[in-house]
Amino acid sequence: MKRSPILLLPVLLAGCAWLAPTYHRPQMPMPDKWGTAQTAATPDDSTWWRSYGDPVLDGLVDEALKNNDDLALAGAKLQQARAQYKYAFANQLPSISVAGADAYGRVHLKDELPTPHRMSNLGFVGGMLNYEVDLWGKNASLSKAAKAGVRAAGYGHAAARLSIAAATAKLYFSLRALDSERDILQRTIQTQTELLALVQRQHEVGAVDALAVQNVTEQLDAAQAALPDVEDQRGKAESALAVMLGRSPEQIIGQAMDRGKNIDELTIPIPTPPEIPSTLLERRPDIAMHEQTLIASNFNIGFARAAYFPTISLASLAGVNNIDIDNLYRATTRSWTLAA
């Protein structure tokens, strides 16, 4: 037991990312102050679509954020990045393993030897402690790269969430606009039909010539020809919105999309100021994601450099063994080993 402090040596040796280059954010020449006197603060509203005051739109966006496959994929990538970080962080810690063995057999010797022929057992139970001395920062660099990967995946998930919410709102408003366009065409067709009947009666009594009838007929034909195209666009927009919501094909075909308030009744959100500081770009999750990816690549350089150097590992073994497994814990011998 006098040499037991040697077992603490792996804990006292810790590695640093010495070979990884220091990350410096690229600096852009920016003005010392904002050019205009008015600077409006832009709120970081993660539920910006609720400012329109349409409960149907709110429900559709919530459904998309819950069921969209792209967002689920981004969430799975985030979980994968977290698992990789836990694995990389665990490599910096000592590993403990337990082993046991039991052998049963008999050795046949020559008859003239006095050794009796008897069955024998050989049992062993012990534990091993392994630790890699991270002198060159290989494991530390890998852990920091994985940590930056977790941040990048988190920003990627936020970017996917923002993109899906925006796409859902855009498809919803496009669908509402096509609804309005269809209603206008239907009212136009009805008006032109009534006008054509009136002009035809006027033509019969000689009040107008045939050219007037022809003009009204052409306007009616143009409106009727435009209606199928609008109906087709409306159906495609409704199907695209249903796919964005993660609905099944049966729901896409058999379930009509809900409609909320009329376009004229929606609340108009406060518009974004035309002049805002460029530093707001740092709040974009896609830009932050790419920066974290750059940081992870920076630490991967340190990992690759450290891989050129020798690996130093320490191992210690302790256990008990006995020639009779039944009396293992009353061991006839005790052993321990420390190796590097």
Rank of each mutant, 00 (worst) to 15 (best):
V107W: 10
L12Y: 03
A101L: 12
A237V: 01
L135H: 12
A307V: 09
E181A: 14
S297W: 10
E275T: 12
I325H: 11
N67L: 07
G53A: 05
G246I: 01
P29M: 13
S163K: 10
V213G: 02
M257C: 06
Y155K: 11
T311S: 15
I276W: 04
N321Q: 12
T333L: 15
T267A: 07
A315T: 14
D209A: 08
T115F: 13
E275P: 04
L142E: 07
E181K: 06
P26F: 03
R161E: 12
G75P: 01
E231V: 06
G53R: 07
A14G: 08
E238C: 06
S313A: 10
Q79S: 09
L12N: 06
T293P: 02
S316W: 00
R118S: 09
K66M: 03
D134I: 07
D183M: 13
E265Y: 07
T168Y: 01
P114V: 11
A160V: 07
Y85D: 05
A167C: 14
A145L: 03
S143N: 10
F309Q: 04
Q80K: 05
A148P: 05
P31M: 07
D70C: 01
D70W: 01
D183I: 04
P10I: 10
Y52Q: 05
A166C: 05
L178D: 08
D45S: 04
I189V: 08
V199T: 13
N68H: 03
A210I: 12
T217L: 12
W48M: 06
D44C: 00
G206N: 02
E265N: 03
Q80N: 01
D229W: 08
N321W: 11
P55Q: 06
V61C: 05
E194T: 08
T337M: 14
V320G: 04
Y155G: 05
I287W: 01
D58K: 09
R330G: 15
K236A: 12
K110E: 15
M128L: 14
L178F: 06
P277F: 02
D183Y: 10
Y131C: 09
S4R: 06
D54M: 04
L9K: 02
A165R: 00
P277D: 01
Y172S: 01
F309D: 04
Q84W: 03
S239N: 13
S141Q: 03
L60T: 00
P273R: 02
L109H: 08
D44E: 14
R106M: 13
Q233R: 07
K77I: 01
R182Q: 15
V11P: 00
L162K: 08
A76C: 10
N300D: 15
S180M: 04
P310C: 12
L227A: 09
G235Y: 04
D44Y: 11
I312P: 02
I96R: 05
I325R: 13
Q192H: 11
D264H: 06
F173E: 08
T22C: 00
L93H: 01
S46P: 09
Q27L: 11
G302Q: 04
T36R: 12
I301C: 09
E132L: 10
S174E: 15
F173I: 14
A237T: 00
E275M: 11
I253S: 10
F89M: 15
V320L: 11
T337F: 15
L65S: 08
D179Y: 02
D54R: 00
G126R: 04
V199D: 12
A304S: 13
Q202H: 06
F299W: 02
T42L: 02
P277H: 01
A152N: 07
L93T: 07
G35Q: 14
A167M: 14
I295H: 01
Q190V: 14
K170V: 13
G127I: 13
